[in-house]
Design a protein around this nucleic acid. Structure first.
Lengths: 238, 238
DNA sequence: AATTTTCTAAATCTTTTGGTTTAGATAACT
DNA sequence: AGTTATCTAAACCAAAAGATTTAGAAAATT
């Protein structure tokens, strides 16, 4: 439970000055909240957050312009305990997805009753996520659709399956950007053997050089090892 | 609203035979449901789904074994209108995340009242997502944490920013696995000029060959063009 | 027992890449 | 006006990579 002896500090960002005034009024009606700042500019908003370290940011986002999303990202990156509640006119599944992905902790539609907004602020300030069922469903529409896309990319008839286990080992090292000599050293075989394997890999993957072999591997779900040029985007296997 | 003149066909999968019996009893108590099949084996469960095309699959998943998650994936891939509701003993954030990612449409804890399960079935059968607030919060813990990981990988002080615009163009073509001659052709400059650019790129990215330059580019959020070896995992920019 | 696959290795030759230096032409900035 | 950054280009050399052929040994399959 949150500390009710202290007022929640809130910063408001909404590019529509009228909305901004309305929300400010609504918030100040509640005695347990304190509006630390309010602005119509995303950039000024970020500065307000930097200055005041509010508990909550109420952030308006609209579909076409992407200032709102960028502001969410910028605020998230500050690593404050500030929690972001999105206030949007749109229940577009991609917009909800992106906002949540970038670190929003709550999402409220402008068409919702104002009591919902208060609910959201309360829930989020206590560390929960506020995403009403209908919006949650929209979120998952996009989330699951893009997951399926990813799967399709990765899964689908995969030339990688035709590789022998030794070839897989060699390809793993290739995807770390290592040359023949080092690969030979690591696998304790001769350099010419490595070349033989690599040529076989090229044929099986239907490419003619390392770069394309590596690109094929990476775009088809080939697991990268932790080392080398930095490990890839998670892509966790089931 | 769903068609209440027709019973919802449900398939049950739970590796614990006792649980399975209990759930079956609970479900059959409701006159509007019909248990089309029940099994303790994930694989048999998938076959039941293939045979009966149920409206709902109630799927038990446990943390250590990953049959449950794989079964969810397998059923999702069938592209039926079958909706999966997970019944789990764990509210582990990663487990919830993975289940939903792989296509589950509802997630109910075994500790929840049985009426919640009925709720879930109803909501999900009507096309909604059923993820109670507490579980939604857990889900987003993992979702946002892995998004931040991704960001960290991509964002962080990026040598790519030191590239000139021409070098960026060249690197783009490198990441498509194209050789000097073709790059020269595409940019309508001589091959030696391309080499000069590439060498400058190598120095700026602190690598000594194409493969590592490409790997650096890909693991640091370099946008890939649609062509070539297949475009990458979405990685949508804000 | 015979055949196929996989892993190993070498030889040879061509092509591509990478490293380095030098340099002219613009464009931009001080 | 002078300096710096960028894009262009060539020459030259060394190293690495790629293509192709041949071949032995062990393991797996038929």
């Amino acid at each position: 439970m949150r500390d009710f002896n202290r007022k929640l500090k809130i910063v408001l960002i909404d590019d529509n000055a009228n909305h901004l005034r309305g929300i400010k009024e609504l918030i100040t009606l509640e005695s347990c909240y304190e509006v630390a700042g309010a602005t119509t500019s995303a950039n000024l908003g970020i500065n307000l957050v930097k200055k005041h370290h509010p508990d909550i940011v109420l952030m308006d986002i609209n579909m076409p312009e992407k200032d709102g999303l960028q502001a969410i990202q910028a605020i998230s990156k500050l690593n404050l305990s500030t929690k972001i509640v999105v206030l949007s006119g749109y229940d577009d599944s991609e917009l909800i997805y992106r906002a949540m992905k970038l670190g929003a902790r709550g999402y409220v539609l402008k068409t919702m009753a104002s009591v919902k907004l208060i609910n959201a602020i309360e829930e989020v300030s206590m560390g929960k996520i506020y995403l009403p069922a209908a919006l949650s469903t929209r979120f998952f529409e996009f989330f699951q659709a893009s997951s399926r896309e990813e799967e399709k990319m990765l899964g689908s008839e995969n030339l990688l399956n035709s590789l022998t286990s030794r070839e897989v080992e060699v390809l793993e090292l290739l995807t770390e950007g290592i040359n023949y000599k080092s690969i030979a050293g690591k696998l304790i075989i001769s350099e010419t053997t490595v070349k033989t394997h690599v040529n076989n890999i090229f044929q099986k993957l239907q490419v003619n050089d390392r770069t394309n072999a590596v690109l094929y591997a990476l775009t088809h779900g080939f697991k990268q090892k932790g080392a080398g040029a930095g490990s890839k985007s998670a892509m966790m296997s089931v």
